[in-house]
Amino acid sequence: MALANSINGAVRRVPAWPLYLLGAGWMGWQFWLALTGQGKYGVEPINVLEREYGLDALILLVAGLAVTPLRTWAGVNLIKFRRAIGLLAFFFVLAHFLVFALLDVQTLGRVVTEVVKRPYVTVGFIAFLALIPLALTSNNWSIRRMGPVRWRRLHKLVYPAALLGALHFIWLVKGWPLEPFLYMGGLILLLALRLKWSRIREIATTRRGGARTS
């Protein structure tokens, strides 16, 4: 745990607020590249920007969900960055949705049609909706007002939201490329690491013992 301790020591001196600047800077930089048609945005910027923001959101969701297992299993405490990571994830989902609605699909009627008629869009949209109350309550005032138990229960919504986001990715691609499945696999792993394994083993042992005596 020497490594974990030195990481924790270093982290104590790093504030969380630069993450917001980094996130906003990256979002703005990508938009600028798309606007001016540079690099990967050279030929068709709309779809590429849409996917960039969507993928950034998914990466941030994975990062946010890695904080707790890192603490439980490796003793690395990055909890002070979790709010910034989560809020940034939401803002990238929002940006992803806005590029989809305003630049890609372009009319309100078509946005409604796409959300209602296309299951992969529906799934992504539900994930977006699920993240809204989480973003709205990601502040100390809300935690105080709601109380930690209710607040934590509400914020478990990020689990289905992230899984729906990964499903949205798998569903929209043609064929079976590996990448979307890596995100889904990573998320499932991170959620599985939250299960109380000792408690599960206990229950299983009790059940087996019970079966033997009967």
């Binding site: 048609g37 030929v43 910027p45 630049l103 078509r110």
Partner: peptide
């Protein structure tokens, strides 16, 4: 939908 298409080269 196949009702519309995006013409490549039109920018953002």
């Amino acid at each position: 939908s196949q009702a519309t298409e995006r013409r490549i080269g039109g920018g953002l």
